[in-house]
């Protein structure tokens, strides 16, 4: 067993885990954070996307021990004080989901994009979501949801400045 200490959504968690425990299993089964989904389990579909030290990663392809001492953000950490994150709001407003299975991963991947590109083109959004599969929507409304969030986040940044 390995002793790990990971900050998840701002809260530090200590645990003893087998080194082969995947980060996604640690989040879901040890911490009960089931918003991060397991889709393909082969680093392709992106359903398990979380942020590790602020960058999007596929949690099915990271061992929990690799995240020891680091900071993880999951979909559960996106809303603040009961208010939806602009991306969450965008997916609702623009009907960016049907079954919803891919949505947490889509939001985490899009959040990484918007961190370093606050005004992405449609092509840039599609390129940034290449690692996330949706088998329902055909992606159009997902792109609109990200555009909605980008717009709202730029407006918020302007108001704050």
């Amino acid at each position: 067993m390995a002793h790990i200490s990971i900050t998840v959504n701002g809260k530090r968690h200590e645990a003893d885990v087998e080194p082969r425990t995947l980060l996604v299993d640690f989040l879901r089964e040890h911490l009960g954070l089931t918003g991060t989904h397991v889709g393909c389990d082969t680093s392709q579909c992106g359903a398990c996307t979380v942020h590790l030290d602020g960058r999007s990663v596929k949690a099915c392809t990271v061992f929990a021990v690799q995240a020891d001492g680091r900071s993880v953000t999951t979909i559960e950490g996106m809303s603040a004080d009961g208010a939806l994150h602009p991306l969450q709001e965008g997916f609702r407003e623009e009907h960016g989901l049907q079954c919803g299975f891919c949505t947490p991963g889509m939001i985490m991947a899009a959040a990484d994009l918007l961190q370093h590109n606050p005004d992405p083109s449609e092509a840039e959004i599609r390129h940034a979501l290449e690692g996330n599969y949706c088998r329902c929507t055909g992606y159009h409304n997902i792109v609109r949801a990200v555009q909605y969030a980008a717009r709202k986040m730029r407006e918020q940044a302007t108001v704050e400045a």
Binding site: S43, G46, T49, L52, R55, S56, V57, K58, T61, V62, A109, D112, L113, A128, E130, G131, N132
Partner: peptide, 9 residues
Amino acid sequence: IGDPQVRNR
């Protein structure tokens, strides 16, 4: 290569 998540790692 791959996708953004893969390129981050």
